[in-house]
Amino acid sequence: MKESSILWRGEMTTRRALTGRGMSFLSGGMLWLLGFLILPSLIFIALSFAERGVYGEVIWTFSLENYRRLAGFSSFGWTPDYLLILGRSVIVAFVTTSVAILLSYPLTFFIASRPERSRFMWLVIIIIPFWTNIVIRTYAWFFLFSPEFPFARIAAFLGLIPAGTSLYPSAFAVYVGMISDYLPFLALPLYSSVERLDWSLVEAAQDLYASRIRVFMQAILPQTAPGLTVGIILTFVPTMATFVVPDLLGGAKYMLVGNLIQQQFGASRDWPFGAAISMALMLMTLFSMRIYRRKGKKVDLL
């Protein structure tokens, strides 16, 4: 039986030919995902239930031991150390994202209000840090936070740190580093929404007696939600897992889950435990985004 021809977007073809073409276009990406995402993930899940051998090799006997250990149970009793690190990571990611949001709104409105020509220049200024490696950018903070520079001097003058010491390693340095590294990830998607803002909704809210907060919540936030959502995902997810910034600027004083994982795969050679922490991180990230989605239900953020 001859298959009937159809007109598809102006092209004479058959259903079968279209399906075939679509599949062939898709197959590359599908295979890539299967080979480099799905399979490794499955191995990882399996690995997280395995056991470390004496010399750091993987012994494929399955137990919940790694997760028990992550929860703080060991032969010496219970310690909250790992849970503290996990909790701290969530807080760092949350604070970084929140501060980035607070900074991005004025920033993006400022850029969007510039004349078209200089708008481009402002965007380039935001994008330029992307051209520099994150490690180098983070090292740059070493200079800025060193004892001779004004930041450390002011802090010393205010009695926040002993005179002659640097501002790193510290929680403060981690936050500054994280926010400066991840601000563009939030500001750029947000800008794409702010630029297209329909100001007549703002005027309508004003006309209908709305307070400033109400104007923002009802006329600006819902309109910028798509960009904000992308920005939050692009900021929150990597900040949960980051290890360069806390490693360099936090030192041992401010370990995050990223550093913990790196340690397991590096120095400790305990891959199964590292895999278990990674799983925990993944679940926590998903869970955090879920909470965010619930909260944002009214404005349909995700």
Binding site: Q206, D207, A210, P222
Partner: peptide
């Protein structure tokens, strides 16, 4: 300013709040 005037506007594009129901749009003021 507009928020202090007993004058209300029907905007050209209507400028209805897309995330609010019809009831809530009307209730806005």
């Amino acid at each position: 300013p507009a928020a202090k005037r007993q004058v209300n506007t029907v905007f050209q594009s209507y400028a209805l709040f897309p995330h609010l129901s019809i009831f809530e749009n009307v209730a806005f003021g």
